[in-house]
Design a protein around this nucleic acid. Structure first.
Length: 497
RNA sequence: CGGGGCGUAGCGCAGCCUGGUAGCGCACCUGCCUUGGGCGCAGGGGGUCGGGAGUUCAAAUCUCCCCGCCCCGACCA
């Protein structure tokens, strides 16, 4: 295990013992820091008895539920309906689309025995549901009147990964997968981009996590898609995280599963399909975007508890007055009162700090006498003394400001860690510059042809082409740094999770 | 799947080299005392030492096998 340095408690030496921080500093070991924050923030823990899986704890699941609500509302507002398909998929289904099976075969878990008997045809535990949904789409769709078909499912999926990290990559994970069918390619493309916008909006406005929207290279696209789009975020160590993907499946699955419709003109044609997904990985991205050495930092919009009030008192008569006021004030502003008697205020401050609660309020005898209250933001650690009468407004303002500030800080980090390269040598040196000491990364923008041979060269730097941005300040034509051929824009090259 | 680390009380660890009564801190229980950033004191409960086999009078400790977890690399939301 990692040895932890003592956290020296300087504010009250005569009363406080030397304490050990339960969290490894980010700067020392980012991976250990991340794991500590997940554990100390009570978000999840390794399932231990089930390889590669995790238990999402109440605090973590509450964040997922808030995220779900944000996505689900937007999906429904754009005409999608929720459905649920089986966890088990006949193995043969996977084989109907050549690229699809090639891409997913290595990571499938297969059920071969059920009810004590060997199955005639094994089932795979879904790694994603394009195939089984294709099968049902072919039964549900006959006419142009049945289109567009817009469905979404909230589900678990399983991919047998060799290397797992909580939230970022586990064998089983939760996600939503949207599946749609359209009469024309144009409509399908519009759908893919509409969803990509929703992903970006939730990431930026709800998670306070800036992203780059882009197109995946052919080498990096979803197995079975014509084109894949993604949003890419940058973590605090400069590594990239794919935070949501939206795929233009063309007619590949339509043909594989015979999903045909009769057009207004009476002609038979295959549907144009899309699929798109965002997973619990987003929570990993959330943690790696905002949290610090003291623990979790949650943006107000995704904090299950937005404010906690810690009452402070000495004597019995103070206790009664403080608690009465604490409950009254907390009720007014929607804060939770931590009135546990067996914990001292100091212990409570540390507790809520680790859990990432955006605002902690302090109320003690001094405040009662002056009609004030103390408000402290999790991200800045700044304490403000303000009149109780102004609390409701000031709390809302503080939460809104914190939401904005978190985004601003992350946006600035993305900007300042994004650099331009005009040759492959420059890509290499720019990537190596940050890898050595920091164990980190950055985004390098370079002109590159969308050709698997070019993607492959990035392996030398342990990097990948994250995406070809749809729009950003690095747009503009140039020559591919590998082939010299003219290309119309720069791509994002980075090390990634 | 390769390399490394680790499995001893709920958690974090010491003990192992050199075999001989299973320990420490936190947490937990009881009481008193404290409360504006991890209070203190006193008393107390809690263990198939990851599993199996072997060596030995005797194994947490030595040998072999197995299992699991974490980290680092090749594949990936």
């Amino acid at each position: 295990m990692i040895l932890l340095p003592p956290l020296i408690v300087t504010w009250n030496k005569k009363r406080s013992p030397m304490l050990e921080s339960p969290i490894t500093p980010r700067s020392r070991d980012f991976a250990a820091w991340y794991q500590d924050v997940v554990l100390q923030g009570d978000m999840a823990e390794p399932a231990e008895i089930v390889k590669g899986c995790m238990v999402i704890k109440p605090n973590g699941y509450a964040v997922w539920e808030l995220l779900q609500r944000e996505f689900d509302g937007r999906f429904k507002a754009t005409g999608h309906q929720n459905v649920y398909f089986p966890l088990l998929i006949p193995q043969s289904f996977l084989h109907k689309e050549a690229e699809h099976v090639a891409g997913f075969s290595p990571e499938l878990a297969v059920v071969t025995i059920a009810g004590g008997k060997e199955l005639e045809e094994p089932y795979v535990i879904r790694p994603t549901s394009e195939t089984i949904i294709g099968h049902f789409f072919s039964r549900w769709i006959q006419s142009w009147r049945d289109l567009p078909m817009l469905v979404n499912q909230w589900a678990n999926v399983m991919r047998w990964e060799l290397r797992t990290r909580m939230f970022l990559r586990t064998t089983e994970f939760l996600w939503q997968e949207g599946h749609t069918a359209h009469a024309t390619h144009q409509e399908a493309i519009e759908e893919v981009l509409r969803i990509l916008d929703i992903y970006a909006e939730v990431a930026e406005e709800v998670m306070a996590m800036p992203v780059i929207k882009g197109v995946k290279t052919q080498a990096e696209k979803f197995a079975g898609a014509l084109r894949s789009y993604s949003i890419e975020a940058m973590m605090q160590n400069g590594l990239a995280l794919q935070a949501g993907t939206s795929h233009d499946l063309g007619q590949n699955f339509g043909k594989a599963f015979n999903v045909q419709f009769q057009s207004k003109e009476g002609q038979l044609d295959y549907v144009w399909q899309t699929s798109w997904g965002a997973s619990t990985r987003l929570i990993g991205g959330l943690i790696m975007s905002h949290s610090d050495d003291k623990g979790l930092v949650l943006p107000p919009k995704l904090a299950p508890v937005k404010a906690v009030l810690v009452p402070i008192y000495r004597k019995d008569h103070e206790k009664g007055q403080v608690l009465e006021a604490a409950h009254r004030i907390a009720k007014d502003v929607g804060a939770k009162v931590d009135d546990r008697e067996e914990q001292t205020p100091g212990a409570k401050f540390f507790h809520w700090e680790r859990l990432g609660v955006p605002v902690v309020l302090e109320l003690g005898p001094r405040d009662l006498a002056s009609n004030n209250i103390v408000l402290k933001r999790r991200d800045t650690a700044v304490k403000e003394v303000l009149p109780q009468a102004e609390l409701a407004a000031r709390l809302q303002a503080a939460l809104a400001q914190m939401q904005n500030d978190l985004y601003g800080v992350a946006k600035q980090r993305l900007k300042s860690n994004t650099v331009v390269a005009n040759s492959i040598e420059e890509v290499e040196s720019l990537l190596k510059e940050v890898t050595a000491e920091k164990g980190g990364g950055r985004f390098v923008m370079a002109h590159m042809k969308d050709d698997p041979a070019c993607d492959a060269r990035m392996k030398e730097f342990k990097a990948t082409v994250r995406c070809m941005p749809l729009t950003d300040e690095f747009d503009g034509p140039g020559k591919c740094i590998i082939t010299g051929e003219p290309v119309d824009r720069r791509v994002v090259i980075a090390k990634a999770y």
